[in-house]
Design a protein around this nucleic acid. Sequence first.
RNA 1: GGCGGCGUAGCUCAGCUGGGUAGAGCGCGCGGUUCAUACCCGCGUAGUCGGGGGUUCAAGUCCCUCCGCCGCUACCA
Length: 588
Amino acid sequence: MDRKSAEFRAVFEQVHCSFDRFIRTTEPEHVRVVQRVFARLRDSGDVYRGRYEGWYCLPCETYFLEKDLLEGSCPDCKRPVTRTQTEAYFFRTSAYADRLLRAIEDRPSLIGPESRRNEVVAFIKQGLQDACISRAASEWDIPVPDDPTQTIYVWFDALVNYLTAAGYLQDAEQLAAWWPAGVQVMAKDILVRFHATIWPAMLMALGLPLPERIFAHGYWLTGDGEGERKISKSAGDLVNPLETAEELAQVSGCKTEVAVDAVRYFLLREVTFGLDGVYRTEAVMQRFNDDLANDLGNLLNRTLPLVERFTGGTVPAPGPAAGALADPIATAAERTRAALADLDLSGALTAVWQLIGAGNRFIDERAPWDLHKAGKTVELEATLYDMLDALRVVGLLVSPFMPVVAREIWAQLGLGDPAVQASWGDCTAGRLAAGGRIVRGQPIFPRIDLRRAGARAQSRRAGQAPQPQERPRVPEPEAPRTEVTTDEFARLDLRVAEVVAAARVEGKDRLLQLTLSLGEETRTVAAGIAQQFPPETLVGKRVVLVANLKPAKIGGVPSHGMILAAGESQPLAIVTLDRDCPLGSKVR
RNA sequence: GGCGGCGUAGCUCAGCUGGGUAGAGCGCGCGGUUCAUACCCGCGUAGUCGGGGGUUCAAGUCCCUCCGCCGCUACCA
């Protein structure tokens, strides 16, 4: 389980998902909260001890209802079942049916999408039974307080997890900040009975407010063959989005991180959030070219050269003629905001793309090259400013969907990290500071040659060995840039660290595994310096760590950063400090 | 079985509680442009809105029915 948890965290990072709190049901604090919740509900009478009777399959350890039996046998293993009854605790769901219906009626937006809300209402109206929330003691479930014969069903404690994470029964201030949740999102198959029925009933029983919104998302179907079907592991058509991203990166030549963002874009743009969608790699590629390369990427890459040419790369002052894009910007921001509030993620992106379209049209209409020829400097500079300013807002609006791309756009505009100052107020025309320097880089989304990509996919599908195909031409870097801006440099997080332990890595004679202390934090870093620097000579040394380097596994060692050393292909000297300073100090 | 949803241009889909010549993106056709990643801009193309019947001055939009597809129908986070 620990390994699974680590895997989940790693995937979150790889797909650029951040979180405020990652919680596991095994946390000791959670166990305490669950038991207190259970005890409280038992005291109030919402939980009572009763008897459960049903058809039991011994090998499967599962109860079945009469109607679910297959010719009187277990529907799973086909073996005979026996009429059995056990003692168990029940939650009085039945007492809350009216209140649940009223809550849904009072606030139609409580449960979404709408079709799901209908299902929930139908489910409640057919009559609620009390929910069995415990079973004969098992070692991995949480024990019922004061009753060693029973443990609490996982789904009950899983729901309570939301409260534990919000600080319930631990920190009133934290709870007030996080609860009620603005929105709870889950898969559609666990919406109806758990998240839209028992869960709100539990909250009512505890006297807690309900979430603002409970929303079920759909599934992705594969559409590779004839028709669509649910992606299933057993059918072997499991899609790994990271593999699509890798393929995208290869076939386009973009960075893997950008490709990951592109897949995120596809997933959020392609379907109405909440409904099922069809996932096809070709469709991802298509959107990559149409939306990202042609529309967004191209807008950036036709703006920057113009600025370089006509102002020498400096953001011009807007002047009185600027502001021509103020309306499209305001409209896009407002539509995006409204769509997000409504969980219409696709609609939000559509709104941003309307602004991108307006930007592309604007360049054609204004024709800055003509303004330049005509010597209309004021208009020219206003036009360039408006273009850059619009891109600035596009970066901001796009940042929740594609954080890496947004940062890249802003970097090329000579700005920092959009996430740092993201606020709706910044999505207004005219907030771009004049005088900054743009930093033109490589195209973020190199266009994919779809014919070539298609052939590649076909050979893959035919099961042939991947052809040793020449990498599609990546645009040659122009003259290597010798200058960087302070903003670019500031993206590196350099820190003072002390080597607290160093060890050789078995089977890797060049590799050392270093344990570094940053004061508060301890890190593991792999370094290819074993041949020049025996581990024992390093312990106690103060070194400089690149702390925000993307984590990687090097020779089997998970490495979170790198230390600085002099030398071209071989390390000649380690960078150390000439006097003492606190561990973790920033280096700049 | 019961309840609910879907079926709209070649493709993927918007079209709220009834009303202005049925929309978007992609594709396709024509034209323009050359700042840009053979890109962008403009114009155009097409749909008996699943079939049939009904209500109404007026219906993808309401009612009935038929066909096809899908979901929910409790103790499996």
